[in-house]
Computed example of a mutant assay.
Amino acid sequence: MTTKIFLSTALVLLLASCKDNTTQETPQPETPKAFKEKSSYEIVSKGPRAGDLVDVLYEELLSKDTGLHMLEAQINDLNRSKNDSVKSFNRFHGRMQSYFESTDTHVSEIRDSLLRDKIKLIIASHLAKYDARVARHHELLKVLAAKDINISDLHTALKIVKTLPVIEKYQQTNLPAIQQIEGYIKQQDQAIHLADTLLKK
């Protein structure tokens, strides 16, 4: 009889300990590093956009998402190579602008008005030809600028869309209980009541 009671007790204790173990093993949602320690957030926040939690949280996601990591690498490559792509034309165009600005100065020094007007027409003709030559370059630079804006807008939108679920999870698991606030309000009520009572004496 004693053996049966012992076995039954042991079985109950074993089941209880198993139940406790399963409860303890339930994984908790991972808290973003930015919210774990104040110091870690402050370190990350010393960049050009200090205090920008969207950027901080997005940086955390990069290490876990290969797609995002690839996109960031591509955007960085684009930013590095953009200057190389337009540098030679910008230098060339700058020289042409400088030349035609210089001709204006020289033309103004011609005292003969008929000759001055004739030279102005020649310069205007050459400038029109040059503008026609570089028209396609300017069109492409406009396309480039528009695509830069498009990439920047999509990048910003992606950061927000990807970090919103992180914030949502953090809200669900870390929202403080209201008891502390309610307790403080009760203390305020007591202080108000006491002050009111003393005032009426």
Rank of each mutant, 00 (worst) to 15 (best):
H137P: 13
A73N: 14
Y58I: 01
N83F: 12
L144R: 06
A177S: 15
I151K: 02
V134L: 07
L57P: 02
F6P: 07
T9L: 07
K87T: 05
K38C: 10
E72Q: 06
S8V: 03
I181C: 10
I43M: 13
P176F: 02
T156K: 11
D189L: 03
F100G: 03
I167T: 02
L61M: 05
R49V: 05
S88Y: 10
V86C: 04
D20T: 14
L14E: 01
Y170V: 02
R80F: 13
A132W: 01
I149P: 08
I181W: 11
I75M: 04
R49D: 05
L11Q: 08
K38P: 13
T31G: 05
D104P: 03
K19A: 15
N21C: 14
H155W: 12
K82I: 05
H93V: 03
Y58F: 14
L199S: 14
Y99L: 11
D131A: 13
V161Q: 11
S113W: 02
N83S: 14
I110S: 04
A16Q: 02
Q74R: 09
T105E: 08
K186W: 02
I43F: 13
L15I: 04
E109I: 02
Q188E: 13
L15V: 04
T156M: 06
I123T: 11
S88F: 09
I5T: 15
V44T: 10
L164C: 05
D77W: 09
L144N: 09
E37R: 10
S98E: 15
G47E: 06
T22Y: 11
A16P: 02
D65H: 00
E101A: 12
K46Y: 08
K120A: 08
L115H: 00
R111K: 15
A177M: 06
D112N: 11
Q180I: 07
I43Q: 15
S39P: 11
A195G: 04
L115S: 01
F6V: 12
V54R: 04
L121Y: 12
